[in-house]
Amino acid sequence: MAIQNADKSNFKELIGEDFVIADFYGTTCVPCKLFSKILEDIEAEIPFLNIVKLNATDNPEIAEEYGITAVPTIHFYKGGELVDSHVGVMQPQAVKDVIARYMYA
C-alpha cells in the first residue's frame, strides 16, 4: 500500500481502513517535510501499511473538522476510530511503537 494523498473528497474513506496513519501537514512547514521523510522510510520498511497524507493548508475545512491546530499532526486510526495522536515530528521508533500497539490488536 503506497502513501496516499487525500483531499476532502476521500479522506474519510481512506481513514476507514483497518489501521491507518494520517499525516496532516502544511505546504510551507519545514518539520512536516522532515516527518514526511520518516514516513517514507517506514513505508519502505512496511509496504503494506496504510499511510494517508492530508495537506491542511489546502484543505482547511477537513483540518478544522479533525481539530488540527498545528502541523504536523499525526493521527492513528483503527477501523476508522482515532486511537492515538501526536502533534509535532515523531521519531521513527515512536511511530513504530504505536504501530506495534494497534496494528495487530
Binding site: E45, I46, F48, K96, A100, M103, Y104
Partner: peptide, 12 residues
C-alpha cells in the same frame, strides 16, 4: 492469515 515484516518488532 497474518502478515508481518520479520525483525521489525512491530508484530511480535
Amino acid at each position: 492469515k497474518v502478515r508481518f515484516v520479520a525483525g521489525s518488532g512491530m508484530f511480535h
